[in-house]
């Protein structure tokens, strides 16, 4: 019995961290889908979001909810500004230049924050408090439930946004054929900005959900989180939104189950092993379309 309750609580843990990976992976996938860029600065948006929450709660004494909202706003703006300043001028450059720029932005953010706030971790006050539920011998915390609930709602909203609205249609059109979309009257600058805004907002939400369970912000927190979310996006099929969602949950569950088996030191290794296997066996990912070289 103890085995099953441990397993059950690890599955809940896995779904919780999987939710966070999925939200971040969506940002990777959307941006890749639209401009074929692996935006390695995306993970650092999470870190910026976390610092905004920390700063507004500890220095300005704002309500947790207001702080989260502020983090979403700041991250969204940051995402849009990064695209305008760093990526937009390189739109017709080779994709490698874009990739290197993204890595550069990532370093800039990490080291910039280290310079301003120091390398040490900041303790973030409790964001979400509530009772711990006991279901079938497993403990389920309120933050875990909130994380799952928020993620499911966001995924549904995002799917509707992409499928049913004007901007969502523009995103899909641009990701298929940017040239033809422009010729049909689609403003691609707006569409790309919107994509970055959306991805960054999701990263900020992921950041808040992360802080609700692991109440620490540090300058490098985004790199590992971002890297795992990237693995999730590749696993699901980069460019595919349902793929990013699925990939996130699979990575989260894999980590939790490895921990449940008492091998928690191996958990990062397993994630990257999954990446290697996916790249070898099914490079287009679980839900991605088989890739054809663009001519």
């Amino acid at each position: 019995m103890a085995f099953f309750s441990t397993l059950f609580s690890q599955i809940i843990n896995g779904l919780q961290s999987g939710s966070i990976y999925a939200l971040v992976a969506l940002g990777y996938s959307m941006v890749y889908g639209i401009i074929m860029l692996l935006n390695f600065a995306h993970g650092d948006i999470i870190m910026v979001g976390a610092y905004v929450v920390w700063l507004s709660m500890t220095s300005f004494g704002l309500h947790p909810f207001v702080s989260i909202l502020l983090a979403v706003v700041v991250s969204t703006l940051l995402g849009v500004v990064i695209e305008k300043v760093a990526y937009a001028p390189l739109r017709s450059s080779p994709r490698l230049s874009l990739l290197i720029t993204a890595i550069g932005i990532s370093f800039l953010l990490e080291n910039g924050f280290q310079l301003i706030f120091g390398a040490g971790a900041k303790v973030v006050p409790t964001l979400i408090s509530g009772p711990t539920f006991k279901i079938g011998g497993a403990n389920i915390s309120t933050p875990a439930l909130v994380t799952l609930g928020v993620t499911v709602v966001i995924m549904i909203a995002l799917t509707l946004l992409v499928q049913k609205t004007r901007l969502g249609r523009a995103m899909r059109a641009v990701s298929e054929d940017m040239g033809a979309a422009q010729l049909m009257g689609v403003n691609i600058n707006t569409t790309i900005s919107f994509t970055f805004a959306l991805g960054s907002a999701l990263a900020a939400v992921a950041s808040a959900l992360y802080l609700s369970s692991y109440a620490q912000a540090s300058p490098t927190m985004g790199s590992m989180l971002g890297l795992k979310a990237f693995v999730a996006a590749v696993l699901g099929g980069i460019g595919s939104l349902p793929g990013a969602m699925l990939g996130g949950f699979v990575i989260g569950l894999a980590e939790a189950l490895v921990s449940a088996a008492g091998l928690s030191v191996w958990k990062d290794g397993v994630v990257f092993a999954i990446l290697i296997v996916v790249l070898l066996v099914r490079p287009s990912g679980l839900l991605g379309k088989p890739m054809k070289e663009k001519v």
Partner: peptide, 14 residues
Amino acid sequence: RLFKALPVLDNVLI
């Protein structure tokens, strides 16, 4: 150069 993955209607709506 249609948006091949999208439904016919969405192509027109774009």
